[in-house]
Amino acid sequence: MSEVPNELKYCDSHEWISSVEAGVVTVGITDHAQDQLGDMVFVELPEVGQTFEIKGECAVVESVKAASDIYCPVSGEVVEINEMLADSPELVNDDPYGDGWLFKIRLSNEAELDSLLDADAYQAAIDA
């Protein structure tokens, strides 16, 4: 069973979003997603300062046999990326909700958060 922490919000495309701190959220991929993709070999992250619309393609996670686009769960500007992933992509597998985070983004429209799934809804989506 994959882990779905209660305190986070989710997209049906398998990204998680932390709660807001000073207008900024952290984004990663879920335990379920990393499990489906298998061992990560490379993570292509956006550049700090890039801006994205909601659902825009903003990153790529690669395993040996698959490459998946990451869709930006909210609109905004990237303020920080997880530099550790360049050398250690396996962090996404080992600790998807912790050290395996992808990037932090400053929200341009906080109302978008309301459209995200809560843990129960996401759990239901992956069970379906």
């Binding site: 070999v41 490379f42 690669e62 395993s63 040996v64 046999k65 698959a66 490459a67 686009d69």
Partner: peptide
């Protein structure tokens, strides 16, 4: 590095 290639990445 096969994730660059057409059999995995298809249109991308």
């Amino acid at each position: 590095l096969q994730a660059r290639e057409q059999h995995i990445r298809r249109s991308k």
